[in-house]
Design a protein around this nucleic acid. Sequence first.
RNA 1: GGCGCAUUCGUCUAGUGGCCUAGGACACCGCCCUCUCAAGGCGGAGAUCGCGGGUUCGACUCCCGCAUGCGCCA
Length: 490
Amino acid sequence: MAERVRVRFAPSPTGFLHIGGARTALYNWLFARQKGGAFILRIEDTDRSRSTEEAIQAIVSSMHWLGLEWDEGPETGGDFGPYRQTERLSLYEETAQRLLAQKKTYCCYCTPDELKSRRRVALKEGRTPGYDGRCRELTARERDEFEKEGRRPAIRFACPREGTTVANDLIKGETRFENRLIDDFILLRADGFPTYNFAVVVDDNAMRISHVIRGEDHLPNTPKQILLYQALGFPIPDFAHLPMILGPDRKPLSKRHGATSVEEYRRNGYLPEAILNYLALLGWSYDEKTTLFTGEELIEKFSLGNVSRSPAIWDPAKLEWMNGHYIRQIPLKELTLRIVPFLREAGLIKDFPDAEELSWLERVVVSIRDRMKVLGDVVTLTDFLFGEVKLDPQAVERVLKSDEALRVLALAEEKLASLPGFRKDGIERALRGMCEELSLKPAKALQPVRVAVTGKTVSPPLFESIELLGREQTLQRLKKARNLISDKIG
RNA sequence: GGCGCAUUCGUCUAGUGGCCUAGGACACCGCCCUCUCAAGGCGGAGAUCGCGGGUUCGACUCCCGCAUGCGCCA
């Protein structure tokens, strides 16, 4: 424990970085940064049928995007590599052989099919479905027989039949497991690939991991791993098991609950700051008041002792609120740049804007900043500023189809046409003057103008929007709306 | 089926024996601001602390049982 803190995040590359994985990574990262330790990224790709190269890239890229930089791992390398389990096969093999020589493991010739059917029978008879240990006492001759049949052995751990293994979890506290209830689990499969429990112990030791911080789903694996540490004579790290993240139905978070990967949130316009802050608070808290934390504050204040022991339900609404908050924290110039990709993606702008367009975009951003929850909101909020207006039929029906609206539009057009300049303040004066002349409340009289100009009953502030649109476009839209009404009213 | 973990407002949580007539945040409702919608400010409603037993002068907090949920063995 006096040794340097070394922690790791060890995902299986079977898809995008999941929200739960991101939180595990974050807690590891915070812990390492706070303690001045090392944060290691290790790829657990021994399940060849499900692991892919694309998934590794996806995870790496989400980690970078979140700013969870690792000190050792893919891309960066390090003194304890390689950091991919499929590149460490010989280490597992050697370690297993060592245990075999010490008679702490044994060869098992049972095939997966045999095991499966035995398990079924056991379940049907109401017995515990674990491995019965039948190959543990195999004689040399029996082994030869199996070898002659062409069977390749798996290597199993000879688990102690008595005693108790105690895991002192930094979050859950002391948990005890009866050794006799743990079956002789496989370390190395017949094909030479290690099982999860074995590879994890070998690697965590080889990489000098001091604290294993991972999801609670691994808690039942812990006694097996402790037994392995002991058999191998390795020092045992500290363990900390994080509660799960569930959907609103208290089932594991999955696609049917909505977005579950960091990548999806990135694409929808969530900010890393918001995701990190929200994730930090999902299962951890600092005091009874604080909800907003900068990255530095999190590093300073995080502690495993304050991590909750019970599962948390994912609440997209709170994340959204937090995202809106962080959007408002971003300096205008930077926010504008971060919005550009969303405008391009939606086809609202073609190329990357030049300096002039950028300064216009900045003014656009000012008008919508308080209205955004995600960066992608920029599209629906400002689409009327690009190209033609699409008049919402319902809005036309409700606010445009009247003689009063017709008069409003005519006067507005006249007032705006004769304005000396075309700035927000002048526009406002002109339109408020219009309201007075018509003896109408602004709230009433400005709605037809809003619909004519923006196509909707809800929009960014009208006067700014009109300025941003420009005189020519504005007048054109007012006229068009007027013609439309005249036709309709007859 | 066995083993393990968990259980405070709808949600995330504060709470480590008296400070709790249970605090904060999101969501919800109302008011203010206001050209719409937001943002912001102010306020409201919302939890007999899963249930039942103990221990104690006193329990959300400690112990036991039960229920439920989740995990692992798969």
